[in-house]
Design a protein around this nucleic acid. Sequence first.
RNA 1: GGCGGCGUACCCAAGCGGCCCAAGGGAGCGGUCUGCAAAACCGCGACUCACCGGUUCAAAUCCGGUCGCCGCCUCCA
Length: 479
Amino acid sequence: MPLTVFNTLSGRKELFEPVTPGKIGMYVCGVTVYDECHLGHARCYVSFDVIRRYFEYAGFAVHHVQNFTDVDDKIINRAGEAGIPPFDLARKYEQRYFEVFERLNVRRAHVYPRATEEIDGMIRMITTLIERGHAYAADGDVYFSTKTFKDYGKLSKRPEESLLAGARVEVSDKKRDPLDFALWKKAKTGEPSWPSPWGEGRPGWHIECSVMSQKYVGDTLDVHGGGQDLIFPHHENEIAQSEAATGKPFVKYFLHNGFVTVDGEKMSKSLGNFQTLEELYAQVAPDVLRFLIVSAHYRTPLTFTAKKLDDAAAGLARFREGFRHLEELFAFPVSNDAVSPESLDAIRLGSVKSKFENAMNDDFNTAEAIGVLFHALTEVNRLHGAASRSGKAPAGVTEILRPLKSWLGTALNDILGISPAAQALSTDETSRVEELLAGREKARKEKKFSDADRIRDELAAMGYQLQDTPQGPRAVRKR
RNA sequence: GGCGGCGUACCCAAGCGGCCCAAGGGAGCGGUCUGCAAAACCGCGACUCACCGGUUCAAAUCCGGUCGCCGCCUCCA
């Protein structure tokens, strides 16, 4: 199956073919830096991280750009409350963004443009739009005239009448039409502003993405991503601005991720119904969150509950257990026992890989792809269990497992962004754990089972689960 | 009111016309292993895909209707 993506523009899955063969320019809308990030942001950026990683795995050269909106009402208000300059507040949360997403193993974009550093480009694009009759200045503001752009509404599929019927559009005497939106806002006293042909002011929200995507990616983006809430008005307005200014198609494929909801409501900064990622990291390892996110398809709604964290942690542990068993199988001497053809097929690289890629090619279906991997690992576990009991691995198995192991490491690490191995431990902790394990073995040999069990409880309190194997005891980190 | 999405086992979640009398994960139960556990493995677990009609040789998948939930239409990933 060739790579297919769900394009919001058409409302269906389409064959993916970038404008220039082999190269992909992608622009993902970034955060407005006025507060901490939460699981909703994590879902968005992890999803697009996986998409980017899969593009790269598939052999495309990807140029990934993600902006920071660092001038906006909320930043100004928060900064006012905190008594610090808006610029400082914005930089603080920008830094926090990087810290929090680094731990989620999200790859950095190639460029992170900031709105405040691209004002000149915005003024140029606004000027062009005025010259072309798509925008007009009104008392220090500049508005885009949606009536002059015939395709307005093509992304969100809203007929003009219904947009008007909403009556929730911002009212302003300066607008010629209620649907027109601000490209440039006249400065208010005490707020950041820049000089422009229309007087001191600051840019509207949408213009930054049109300008920065054009500058850092090009007139036509192969992929433009963001949360579903950006479809209207943000992306609709970007299309209007960019296509009216360049006369070229703005985006070939619009991809939007689904929401995280909590208690039946969308998780959002403005509703305040969220835990920050930092707070979640205190409860559960970041890679568990990442596993939770990729366990569902990126477009379906994701309801957040505490139980899902537990389920994801258990699933990830099973995953890693399976991978460990895969590695251990190479240590066994080979026997003459034969293995059934079905068994061999379940662990044959060609078979696993093609199923995995088919799933990913179907609009990045990570949920199904993970199912494929679990299926293969169950067979690995079965072989491992048999080998563990008999002390030997069946003939021919390691030859088949070697390419699977090497590819699986790649698939997990490079595509899903999840390490197949558990986190490395500090040497101090490792030696303490080994000490406890040795103490327990000694107690067991002497049949002092209550002492042995006490040590097991101690390990459990440290977050380790004890496993006795024919090859000796092990402690597996569970938290 | 307009636009969009969702409803699959106890929970989560794939499947979107025949390979499905429906993947995979979690939880549970029974068994193997174990000093006991844990991990792993084996077995059990939806005769059915919100409900009602229809199209088709064939529907969880398409069409119409009903119910329920969510999102967007205002800042929002």
